[in-house]
Design a protein around this nucleic acid. Structure first.
Lengths: 168, 168
DNA sequence: GAAGATTGAATGTTCAATCTTT
DNA sequence: AAAGATTGAACATTCAATCTTC
């Protein structure tokens, strides 16, 4: 059994504050570290495609929404877990790069519709297979059963945290 | 079985690109969302203590390192997974608030030693119990066995990602 | 007045350059 | 020359205020 970073952290807490049950930190801390390390590894791979993490996220969100590959700015914000100001900024830059189009929603002129351009569609699809392959490799230390188990435990946790799908 | 956000995402991928095995996204995506939701919930609780997430992290890192509660700036950076510039900035502000001291390492005058002040020591300890209790509640949807299982799977994953404890 | 998006200010991070010490 | 920290510029995000549309 190889030790990870959190094993060291928990040992330190046990030594410094023995009366404290620090086991919750073992779960939360590992989730945070795993997420950060994965982000970094994934961002590195995207650099090969000339994409940033957030660029792929936004384009992929449009792609998986299905034809006509178009969502409102507000919806993109919910799905990305960032504020509306960040979405405005991100869309600005993707429009400049010609990867998405922005138009006013004719049915509700307060809303803005963002859609993939041809070029944007190709860019995401080009990165997609490589990206999923990369993720698969990053998870390769876990066996198939373990991956399923991990996903299941995380789903339970997420539901408890209120992570339910807002209408599709 | 209640669905979470990623169940929806995977269903969308299955519909749009049926030839793609998107299961790795189910694991990585859930890790990212769980980490973000936990961060947010934890930050909210810290606000009650007048602390930011990064403030608690830095102070708690010093505390769990044990007496004399002192580490170099570089070491703090490694442990926090942020750049040296960020550490300089964070320490600046904690010094101003009187929660840490900064002094040149007499044995190696290139290094800077950061230590908890009395006030800083009290502040972390004051927030610590409440914080762990909060984490316990956030994880409460999982049973004890499930929590252990989750921690174990994450450890395996982390070791695979190279997350080994640099000498303690 | 509320909803949706944009703007500008404030904040905080990374990155590269610099300075001191070894 | 390399190690460690600081600085300033560039960048990106949040937050609050504003503008338009409903």
């Amino acid at each position: 059994v190889t030790r990870d970073h959190l094993d060291m952290v928990l040992a330190q807490w046990a030594a410094e504050t023995p009366e404290l049950d620090a086991t919750p930190m073992g779960v939360v801390g590992r989730l945070q570290r795993a997420s950060r390390l994965l982000d970094k590894a994934i961002a590195d791979r995207f650099a090969d495609h000339g994409l940033q993490l957030w660029e792929f996220d936004l384009l992929a969100t449009l792609l998986r929404s299905g034809a006509p590959y178009e969502l409102t700015a507000g919806r993109l914000g919910e799905l990305s877990m960032v504020t509306s100001g960040a979405i405005t900024n991100r869309v600005d830059r993707l429009v400049q790069r010609g990867l998405v189009d922005r138009r006013t929603d004719p049915d509700n002129r307060r809303s803005v519709l963002i859609s993939l351009t041809e070029s944007g569609n190709e860019a995401v699809r080009g990165a997609l297979v490589d990206h999923v392959d990369n993720e698969k490799q990053l998870l390769a230390v876990l066996g198939p059963r373990e991956r399923t188990q991990l996903a299941g435990l995380l789903r339970t946790l997420l539901v408890g945290l209120g992570d339910v799908p807002q209408e599709e």
